[in-house]
Write a protein that binds this DNA or RNA. Structure first.
Lengths: 344, 344
DNA sequence: TTGTAAGCGTTATCAA
DNA sequence: TTGATAACGCTTACAA
């Protein structure tokens, strides 16, 4: 009655037919006279009838809604992922419920609970930085609940994942620095408990090795918070010793790179002449800073699309014998701008 | 049965009591023996019982869900608004359904439809750039459906709005440029069909007037798309004539400002010595570009909080005699950085 | 071609 | 202190 919303009952009463007839007429079921069909549809239109999705969910035990759990929307990367998710979901008649965890495990757990209460059909997850115990996800998987992890791959068996080839991305970035003649390449790394940090570091190390350069442990510095001010401090420290300092930086992401660039310029060093810099993620601002920042672009939109496709597959294919889909790993793209370009 | 989720029925059967008893026991209703209560809760716990929110929605005609309609998550400003919305919604036991319109009117209309189908309790709207006809919102309001507009205020009677004092923000920004000795201040304006563009332009004009400066119509240029490349082009054009060009720019937002800055630097002009620049919105990147960009900061998080509070009020207070809440207008804050600072 | 009735999970009302 | 029943809006056997 809320909103004075018309229901199937109202239509039935007005037309002196049963609710089942109305229901069938509206969905073009066979075996309904054209006359009735016409009358029903006309009245439905006039009353501005709109099916009650809640009743449908209850009836069908299916809500046509998927949940998305992400750390934070403000991260440019995640907001592009969301766009990809929405695109595919809507195209397939699904709604999207979004929850941010703000990188908190407790939020993550409670989101899962509310989403389940709301009978969502499946969930896309990029887990929080705090999450090291994955049992809340394991429980879902044991119940065969459709779940796809993206970007951050959990330490669990039999998960479905859409990730980015971070190893390769880091490798390419580092190789590029080498090709520009930089030889003392430092790495500002991400939080050590995220697998992506580890993989990026490995790519970096491998590229050094392949180039015959020896890595310097003290030139790999973790940036736990990933803030600009943090990396500013770290870079200041790193470049303190004038006689023994890096000539390039590969940063775990663009904000970290930007903080370092500010420090480097403050020290009177020129980018890219004295120091080359490459970031990660291709944030919106990266092309606008001075000099424009070279970076590794992750296909956020495509990750969202792929993850959603996989999830919808899983939702559709829950019959016995259905095979869990294969993981997807997407390629990054090295975007070369001025900050790392000193060979014409 | 999906997920093997336990229902009240399962508990009732197992314990040989009626479903009503179980329901009451779980909610600590009076008139249930402690013994029964204990047994019910224990079993519920053991079965991992979780109330079915869909059934509740249907029963109560209330979903404890609010919808948010925004143009695009990737806009830093909107993503901070979302955080504010989520914060307040979750604290009050509400879920958030998010839909992006990508600035498309058709998407906006269809979102409203699906949200209504899903029996959401209210909606927060920042309408699309394409929207000039507001009848789809009007229809809702006529039905007394709770709706709060934020940031973009529609041309409709009796709406509830949470906005930013854009007039004042623009005025402050322009005054600041004047105080720094700039006298030929151009304005890169926003899309002319958005009220915020108009108000910012008015604030700019008033500040010029108060300073005794005469505005130049040809120095007010609209940037319809708001992209960096667009404003680069426009700025190039604006500064073409060496003998008659602006000495400062007030831009409709930071991306526009950033594009202009690139053009200005390209022309060999120094910021802030030759040309002062102030943007709008305090995007994440604004502090990282060179020189750091002065800007007008909008309280996105607070807008989200305020709008959600108003909406929840309206949802709660739908009895007759309830007064529509007052609009809220939040103040901006001028963030002065190097791009506009030439007086020490 | 149409109607009847049961059921999805929950709660409110009335009766016991 | 507890139970039976109806109802929220819709679909779907089954019956007519």
């Amino acid at each position: 009655m809320k909103l004075g919303q018309a229901t199937i009952k109202d239509i039935a009463k007005e037309l002196n037919v049963s609710t089942s007839t109305v229901s069938r007429a509206l969905k073009d079921y066979p075996g309904i006279s054209d006359e009735t069909k016409r009358k029903v549809k006309e009245l439905a239109d006039r009353l501005n009838y709109r099916p009650n999705a809640v009743a449908l969910s209850l009836r069908k035990s299916k809500s046509f809604t998927i949940g998305v759990i992400i750390p934070e929307v403000v991260h440019f990367f995640f907001s592009t992922v969301i766009s990809g998710v929405e695109e595919v979901a809507h195209a397939n008649g699904y709604n999207v419920i979004l929850v941010q965890t703000n990188e908190k495990l407790s939020r993550e757990k409670s989101s899962i609970e509310t989403m389940l209460s709301n009978q969502i059909d499946g969930v896309l997850v990029s887990y929080s930085r705090e999450t090291t115990d994955f049992s809340h996800f394991k429980k879902l998987m044991d119940l065969d609940f459709p779940i796809v992890f993206f970007d951050r791959k959990p330490d669990l068996e039999n998960t479905v994942n859409v990730t980015v080839n971070d190893y390769q991305g880091a490798y390419d970035a580092t190789r590029h620095l080498v090709s520009q003649g930089y030889v003392k390449i430092a790495h500002l790394a991400g939080p050590s408990n995220l697998a992506i940090s580890k993989r990026r570091k490995e790519g970096y190390l491998k590229a050094l090795e392949d180039a015959g350069l020896s890595g310097r442990p003290d030139w790999i510095v973790e940036c736990p918070s990933g803030s600009e001010s943090e990396s500013y401090q770290i870079a200041m420290e790193l470049f303190k010793d004038k006689t023994d300092r890096p000539d390039a930086i590969f940063a775990h992401h663009d904000i970290v790179a930007a903080g370092a660039m500010i420090a480097i310029k403050k020290l009177g060093l020129k980018i890219p002449e004295d120091v080359g810099v490459v970031g990660y993620s291709n944030w919106q601002f990266s092309s606008m800073i001075d000099p424009p920042l070279s970076t590794v672009s992750q296909p956020g939109f495509s990750i969202g699309e792929n993850a959603t496709h996989l999830l919808l597959d899983m939702i559709a294919g829950k019959e016995p014998g259905y095979q869990r889909p294969q993981d997807v790993m997407l390629d990054t793209e090295l975007v070369i701008r001025k900050s790392s370009l000193r060979v014409p």
